[in-house]
């Protein structure tokens, strides 16, 4: 029984908690991608770098607050700086829409043109972020690092294995729940949200009913920017901030959005957790876990790891390909990839 509990604690510590956290981050990212897809009908490749931009601004604001001695210990100062990052990113997205995408909307370009334009935006943002903050790793997390420390957990339960629950993990999960609840309230209950859904459902009829498309587009970018910044900052607090990592996040984020069904917000959330759990489960070494469960002589010698951590992005890729082959509309019916 104790062995079983130890095994469970081990799994929680290295698989369940990290995957829940990563899943929340992916879900927030995928929600942004899916909203843009639902309204503007293109896959926004600049989303990862939008996240990086929002995080960068938040980091600067955090540093500013830190040097001014402002703190909300035990919570990270970045939470206080988040609104600044959000405001800057919303402004950025609206400016980009005005200066880039609006032109293509006016000339009624096909989605692939938008997609390519977004690749251009991606490169520009990528350059801007590296130019300003540099390509290196930045740490900006402060405050209490743990909610539960592994040692304290061991002492409390008397188990060999501890569960460490980091503040950043708790924060990510709680924030994700609040943000998702607010988003769904917005989409389902408010007039603005309903116009967005109506526009996504039947663009012609929406235009005809007097819904102002430009306004819907603006609201969409605002939401995408808010989601991108929050997702980016949470990821940065949990791991660290490095522009290239955010660019790499694009793959699992798109995989999440597509697995769930592009254009479907519920799907984006489900997709985020599917991808996160797959990545973590596949890259975890089960040696110790199995050692607790099986009789001693059966204990494995190898690491029992399905895939080395270096290849974890391959997981998203494989799932993506499988979904596109078997069920292109995703788990929940999206608009098709």
């Amino acid at each position: 029984m104790v062995d079983f509990l130890n095994a469970f604690a081990l799994l929680s510590n290295f698989v369940i908690v990290p995957a829940m956290t990563y899943g929340s981050q992916l879900a927030l990212g995928a929600l942004g991608v899916t909203l843009v897809y639902g309204i503007l009908r293109f896959s926004n490749f600049a989303h990862g770098d939008t996240m990086a931009f929002g995080t960068m601004v938040t980091i600067f604001a955090t540093w500013g607050l830190q040097s001014a001695g402002v703190s909300i210990h035990p919570l990270p100062t970045a939470l206080l700086a988040l609104p600044v990052g959000i405001a800057a990113t919303v402004a950025l997205c609206l400016v980009i829409d005005r200066s880039v995408y609006k032109f293509y909307r006016k000339s009624r370009s096909v989605p692939v043109v938008f997609l390519i334009a977004s690749v251009g935006v991606m490169f520009v943002l990528n350059g801007v972020v590296r130019f300003i903050i540099g390509p290196g790793d930045q740490r900006f997390a402060d405050g209490e690092r743990f909610i539960i420390k592994a040692k304290a957990f061991k002492k409390l339960t008397g188990l060999n294995e501890g569960i460490a629950f980091k503040t950043s993990q708790g924060l990510t999960i709680v924030t994700a729940i609040i943000v998702v609840a607010a988003l769904f309230w917005f989409l389902n209950r408010t007039r603005s949200g309903k116009s967005m859904r109506a526009y996504s459902d039947n663009e012609d009829l929406a235009r005809l009913s007097g819904i102002n498309p430009e306004r819907v587009v603006m609201i969409t970018w605002t939401l995408a920017a808010v989601l991108a910044t929050i997702a980016g900052v949470l990821y940065g607090l949990d791991k660290s901030f490095k522009p290239f990592t955010y660019f790499q996040l694009l793959l699992p984020i798109f995989a999440s959005a597509i697995v769930g069904g592009l254009g479907n917000p519920l799907g984006a959330i489900a997709g985020g957790f599917v991808i996160a759990f797959s990545e973590v489960v596949v890259a975890y070494a089960y040696k110790k876990f199995l050692t607790y469960l099986v009789p001693e002589q059966w204990a494995p010698d190898s690491l029992v790891q399905l895939l080395s951590t270096d290849y974890k992005f391959a997981v998203s890729f494989v799932i993506l390909v499988l979904v596109l082959l078997i069920r292109p509309t995703g788990i929940f019916k999206g608009k098709g990839a």
Binding site: R191, S195, S209, N212, R215, M218, T222
Partner: peptide, 13 residues
């Protein structure tokens, strides 16, 4: 039906 009258103030964030 409620979508119809355009320019409702609720459309603005």
């Amino acid at each position: 039906l409620m979508m119809v009258p355009g320019d409702q103030c609720g459309e603005s964030l």
